[in-house]
Amino acid sequence: MEKENVTRINTIHLLGFQTQENVKFFMFFLFFITFCFTLCGNVLIIVLVSYNKILHSPMYFFLSQLSLTDILLASDIIPNLLQSILVRETIISLSDCLSQFYFFCVAEIFESLLLTLMSYDRYLAICKPLHYSMIMNHQCCCIFITTCWTLSILISLVYPLTISKLQFCGPNVIDHFFCDLDPILKLSCSDTAIVQLQVILLSLLFAVIPFVIIIVSYVYIIVTVFEIPSITGRQKVFSTCSSQLAVVSIYYGTTACVYMVPSKGQSLNVRKVLSLPYTVLTPLMNPIIYTLRNKDLKNAVKKAFNKLLLCILFINKNRM
Rank of each mutant, 00 (worst) to 15 (best):
L94K: 11
I78C: 00
C148H: 08
I91Y: 07
C97Y: 10
M118R: 11
L55Q: 03
F104T: 13
Y102H: 05
P171N: 01
S93L: 05
F110G: 09
I145P: 00
L86T: 12
M59D: 15
S67K: 13
F168P: 03
D76E: 14
L98M: 12
T192G: 06
I174Q: 09
Q83A: 10
I91N: 05
V87N: 01
L115T: 03
F110N: 13
S95V: 13
L166S: 04
S57T: 15
S57H: 15
L185I: 04
D180I: 14
Y123G: 01
C127N: 01
F103V: 08
S156P: 00
V49L: 07
S188M: 05
I85R: 07
F168M: 10
S75D: 03
S84Y: 10
I109Q: 00
D76F: 07
V106W: 02
Y60N: 09
S67G: 12
Y102P: 01
I85C: 04
A107G: 01
M134C: 08
S57D: 14
E108C: 11
S99A: 05
S67C: 14
P79V: 13
Y102Q: 02
L115I: 03
L185Y: 07
C141I: 01
Y120T: 09
L66E: 13
S50A: 14
T69K: 01
F101D: 11
P129K: 09
L114R: 10
D96M: 08
S57L: 14
V158L: 10
S152V: 12
C141Q: 04
N80R: 12
H131L: 15
V106F: 05
R122T: 08
N80P: 02
I77E: 00
Y132Q: 04
L181K: 02
I153D: 00
Y60A: 06
L187F: 13
L55K: 02
D180L: 14
L55H: 06
L161Y: 13
A74T: 06
Y60L: 06
L94C: 02
I174D: 06
E108Q: 13
M59F: 15
I143H: 09
H131W: 15
Q167T: 14
L166E: 05
E108R: 11
I78Q: 03
L81T: 14
